[in-house]
Structures are given as structure tokens and as C-alpha cells.
Write a protein that binds this DNA or RNA. Structure first.
Lengths: 243, 243
DNA sequence: CGACGAGTTGATACTAATCAACCCTTGTGG
DNA sequence: CCACAAGGGTTGATTAGTATCAACTCGTCG
């Protein structure tokens, strides 16, 4: 299932689309880090594997001593409120950074949805390294801005879309990640539960089920099992009609 | 009204709370830039004044050649969808950066809500400068991460709060900005319309009015005029009960 | 095989969107 | 200086979408 970490160190890749530079290439959205930068970054990091789905990687309110780079697997970041409500603020895929803090305290919790491999950077050492390595720091700026754009996009979706369209958008997002979507069969394998999706889209698990039903009755997708969906991506895009 | 720009150059200040460094001071949340850094940054920038409220500063879809630092005034960033719906993704106050792009195209529009003074940076020159000035680039990382946290916080609010609580949170946020909130009289002067607030909170202007009515009937605030509110900040905080 | 969590379905209640009408303020031109 | 227009703000009536609660099924794992 996970060839990257089967043996040796997985590659250090940071997934992001640039803000201020046009990318005319069709390539995958990974930032170009030089080999030496990768090696030096790798020396700063520990590799940690979370063998089982459901592992808690970090918790909101804890002292934030590390920043995490996901090498393999899927992670969700969530915040639990006084009321007990939980809001999932994002799902992280290989090449994503997580472990956001405010004044050295984690603001969210992070949980492995699948077995995961991560690079863990001590923030102190990392900050010092970035100050000495402008081009690597530049990659981190790009990544942060990329995440900011994603969050703003999600704000639009939460503010203006009904539940079926939120779900459709979410499924398309998931279909962008190779390990979980097979373009040949158009099959998406969801690593998260209905409750997770609901807590991400600001709704309830029941509404997710019903929204799936609505999309299915419009022939935009077909439920093979609860967690595997056959998507008609082009039709879904037309249905969403973003922008 | 605007003493900073009445004469000479307004100060370059970037407003942000750090992520991985504890700030034990009680000071205002402005990043520490050295005087020489400020001077050199200032040389990169043009100062532009938008004399009238409602000025369009930039538009989504345009070529993004500049990044903006707000020196004085209030700006809103919004995205208009195919459907004609508008989502405001953020309000910017002095010390904020705006002009977010993706592959050199602005993703949002930005409009002055009051007369404004901005620093305008050519992105090419700025990027080159940041690569040569690690500590300034570091400030930009911190600012980007700060904005990311704000967006995630807004996601939680949109996902889990009903309209009155969204509004209460928004009013508290506004009260954090000195030019528009007088702590002595607890009076907030709103620079934006009900429609703007509604498009920010993912609702309608009518619902904003009704939510104001609900908060007023709970004695959390008092409407002096449509745009000036007397806030009971402590009670509002208790009402919101965030986290 | 039993148990538990995930997923689904149905009935009901409620929040907020929508549409319409109206008031109030502001600014402009006769 | 006043009249009128235009946009912002408010209120009411109706409707639509979705939250909530309850019951039940399905799938998986010990």
C-alpha cells in the first residue's frame, strides 16, 4: 500500500501552487527543492511512523515543539469547542505541513486517518535553519500562502454552498490525490467517516448520507460501497459551477 | 481622521501574532522590523492613497503585479461567483497584507471601505528582496501563518455557529481595532454595510439586522445609530463561549 | 457469534433564506 | 434651500433546507 516508506527515507516533497509566479508547466504541484536542501532538511527531521489509523499525533493546547511534514498517509486537523462540537479545519495529504501553533501552543489536534509516515521538525532548529537558508524559507512562505488560499476557498464553500454542493466540492478535492483515486475506474476510496466529512463541511453525518443520495440520483456518482465511490468528475464540476 | 498619512510616510507595520515563539509581552501585535529593514522596504514601495470609500483597489482575475500593505483605513477582500453570490473572505486593517494571488492572478477583489493609504510592492522586486533579507522574509512567513490561523478560525465560526454568534464574534473582532472602537465609551463604529457583514458571515443582510435585534434584546449591545454600537464586550465573550 | 461503530432512513422541529413592503438617511440637482 | 432619488436599514410573511432524534441495518473485528 505504501511503497514510499517501505524501505529507507521517503522523499521530502512540499505540495503547493505558487502565488506570485506563473507556472507554465503541467507538472505536479510540488515545490522544487534542491537535493542538498532536501538532504539538510532531512538531517533536521526525525521520521516517525504511525502504524495504526486513529493515532493522535498532536493535541490542541499542547506545547508546540514540532512542525510536521506528511510523507505518506492522510491526517485530519480538528478543533474541539467548549460545546463539544468538533470542526475539522483540514485534511492533509502527502506533501502537506501541519502542526499550526499560536505562541508555541498547538491550535488544533491532528489525527492519523490511515497509517502515516511523517517528518518531524523541532521548531527551534527549523526556524534557525530557515533564517540561514532563504530559498528553503521561500518554499515555506509559498506553502503557507497556498494553505491560506485553500482556507479562503473553503470559506467560500461554507458561506455560499448548500450541503450537496459542499460535498461535491469535497469529493473532487479528494479525487486529486492519487493514492485514493483511480482515474482509470474513476473510483474514490474515502479514508474518513461520514462524521469526519460532516465535521469538515459544517453539517451532520445524516446530511452527508442524504447529500450522497441526491448526487447519486442526479447520476453524478455511484456508491459501490459506503467508502468507495465512482465519480463522474466532469459532471460534478459542471454541477458545482465554482466561480 | 487620519493622522498617520497627514504628512510624510506612514510607518511600516505588520500586524501578526507569532506561531512558534511565545510572546510574553503585553505589547501590541506588531512584528519587530529593524529600522533599516523598514527603510529598505519603504524604498521598494509606492505609497498610494485612495481618497474615497468604495475605491476598487484590485480585481479578481487581473494580473497580480503588486502586493499591498495597508497603512491606514479598512479594506475588504471578496470573491464573486458565477451565480453572482459574493463571499467576503476578509476585512483588512492597518498592518495587514492583501492582494493574494495564484499563479500571478489575483484570486479576490479588494475594495476600500474608508479612505485608505497603502504601500504597494512590485511582487518581482519584493520576492528578490525577501530572498536577500531572511529576517524580513521571516516576518512575511509569520504574517502568512497568522492569516492562515485567522482563516481557520473563521472556518470554525462558519461551520459551528448560528448567525447571532457569528455576528457577536465579528463585532468583537472589530472592537480590537483602535480607530473604530473607543474603549472608554465601548462604542464601535462600523465601516461596512449590513450587506458586507452578511457576505462575510455567509448570510443575508436581513438576518444581520435580526441577529443585532437578538443580541440587543439580550442586552449584549445597544444600537446608537445603524453604524454605531455600544458593546458589552465581556458579556459578548461569555455569550460566544469560544473553545 | 456477538458487539460496536458506521451508515442509512424516516419523522419532526427550527433556523434562516427569500420576497415584499416600507422607513430612514444622505447627497444631488433644480 | 428644498425635493427627490438612491441606497442602506428594518420588519413581516412565507418557504426551504437542514438539524435533530429515533430506529434500524450493515459491516467488521475480537
Amino acid at each position: 500500500m505504501n511503497q514510499a516508506s517501505r524501505k529507507g527515507r521517503p522523499d521530502i516533497r512540499i505540495r503547493a501552487i505558487k502565488a506570485w509566479t506563473p507556472e507554465h508547466s503541467q507538472e505536479s504541484p510540488h515545490l522544487a527543492l534542491s537535493t542538498t536542501d532536501k538532504v539538510e532538511l532531512g538531517r533536521l527531521a526525525e521520521i516517525i511512523e504511525y502504524k495504526t489509523a486513529g493515532s493522535q499525533i498532536l493535541s490542541q493546547g499542547q506545547k508546540a515543539s514540532f512542525l510536521y511534514l506528511l510523507a505518506d498517509g492522510v491526517v485530519q486537523a480538528s478543533r474541539t469547542l467548549n460545546s463539544g462540537d468538533r470542526q475539522i479545519v483540514g485534511f492533509y495529504w502527502p506533501g502537506d505541513l501541519f502542526g499550526l501553533a499560536e505562541e508555541s501552543i498547538y491550535v488544533n489536534s491532528a489525527e492519523a486517518l490511515t497509517p502515516c509516515t511523517v517528518y518531524r521538525f523541532a521548531t527551534q532548529k527549523l526556524e534557525a535553519f530557515l533564517l540561514e537558508n532563504s530559498n528553503v524559507q521561500h518554499s515555506f512562505v509559498i506553502k503557507a500562502v497556498h494553505n491560506l488560499r485553500s482556507a479562503q476557498r473553503q470559506l467560500i464553500i461554507m458561506g455560499r454552498f448548500d450541503i450537496p454542493r459542499r460535498l461535491a466540492t469535497f469529493l473532487l478535492d479528494c479525487s486529486g490525490h492519487e493514492h485514493y483515486f483511480d482515474p482509470a475506474t474513476h473510483t474514490l476510496t474515502l479514508p474518513m467517516t461520514r462524521y469526519d466529512i460532516a465535521d469538515y463541511l459544517g453539517t451532520s453525518a445524516e446530511s452527508i448520507t442524504r447529500a450522497l443520495g441526491q448526487l447519486e440520483s442526479k447520476h453524478l456518482l455511484h456508491r459501490l460501497t459506503a467508502r468507495t465511490l465512482e465519480l463522474k468528475t466532469a459532471e460534478i464540476k459542471a454541477y458545482i459551477d465554482f466561480e
